[in-house]
C-alpha cells in the first residue's frame, strides 16, 4: 500500500514541471501595450529558432557557435517590451496572469528586487540533471515593462552566456527594426 502511495506521489511530482512548462498564452499580455509609445513583440518558436540559427555565421565564428549551442535545445523565446511616455499608462493587474503562471511551485524565483516603483524578478524552471527547462524575467518601471520568457532546455552555463558577453551582441549595438510583429520601429538607444 505504502509503495503505491509513494509511486503515486512520484508520478504526480514528475508531472509538475510538465504542467508548469505548458505554454503561457502571451496574448493575455496584449492589454499592457495598449498605450505604449513603442513596443517590441518577439515570438520565436522552435522551427524559427532553428532557421535563425542556420543563418548565423559559419563554424569558425565563435560567437555564432555560442549562440547556436544556446538555442539548439530551445522550444521558444518570447519577448514583450513596452515603453510609455508617462507613468500610469499601464495597469499592473494586466501582468497578473503571468505572475500567477510563474508562481507555480515548479518555478523558482532566484531574483526578486523591488525598489520604489521598480521591480525585477528572475525565475528559473529547474529540470532533472542540473538543467533548466525555462527562464523568465519580469521587469517593471513606471514607464517601462519588459517580459522575457525562454522556454526549453538550458545548461547552467547557458545562463552565463545569456547574461554575459559570449556571442550575444549588446542591445545598444542592434538596430531594433520591426521585430516579429512589426510593431516596433525604433533605434536602440
Amino acid at each position: 500500500m505504502m509503495k503505491r502511495i509513494v509511486f503515486g506521489i512520484a508520478v504526480a511530482l514528475s508531472f509538475v514541471p510538465a504542467l508548469a512548462a505548458q505554454e503561457f498564452d502571451f496574448k493575455a499580455l496584449d492589454k499592457i501595450g495598449a498605450n505604449a509609445s513603442s513596443s517590441t513583440n518577439i515570438t520565436l518558436d522552435g522551427d524559427t529558432l532553428r532557421m535563425a540559427a542556420g543563418f548565423l555565421g559559419g563554424v569558425q565564428d565563435k560567437d555564432a557557435a555560442n549562440v547556436k549551442s544556446l538555442v539548439a535545445n530551445l522550444k521558444a523565446i518570447y519577448v514583450r517590451s513596452y515603453e510609455f511616455e508617462k507613468p500610469g499608462q499601464y495597469n499592473e493587474a494586466d501582468l497578473a496572469p503571468l505572475r500567477a503562471y510563474l508562481k507555480q511551485p515548479a518555478w523558482k524565483a532566484i531574483i526578486d528586487v523591488r525598489e520604489k516603483q521598480e521591480s525585477t524578478q528572475v525565475y528559473l524552471l529547474p529540470s532533472p540533471n542540473n538543467k533548466l527547462a525555462g527562464v523568465a524575467v519580469v521587469s517593471t518601471e513606471p514607464t517601462q515593462v519588459t517580459i522575457v520568457y525562454v522556454n526549453g532546455t538550458l545548461e547552467m552555463s547557458d545562463l552565463q552566456k545569456l547574461s554575459g558577453t559570449m556571442g550575444i551582441p549588446d542591445i545598444r549595438q542592434l538596430d531594433m527594426v520591426k521585430p516579429a510583429d512589426g510593431k516596433t520601429d525604433k533605434k536602440a538607444k
Binding site: 518577439i42 544556446l70 531574483i111 527562464v135 521587469s139 522575457v148 545562463l159 542591445i171
Partner: peptide, 29 residues
C-alpha cells in the same frame, strides 16, 4: 531566415540586458 536571425539577436540582447540589470540591482541592494 534573415528576419528570424535579426529577431533572435534582438530577443537575446534584451534577455541579456534584463539579466544584467537584475544582477546589478541585486548587487546594489
Amino acid at each position: 531566415g534573415m528576419k528570424a536571425k535579426q529577431d533572435l539577436m534582438v530577443a537575446l540582447s534584451i534577455t541579456k540586458n534584463q539579466l544584467q540589470q537584475a544582477r546589478a540591482k541585486v548587487q546594489r541592494s
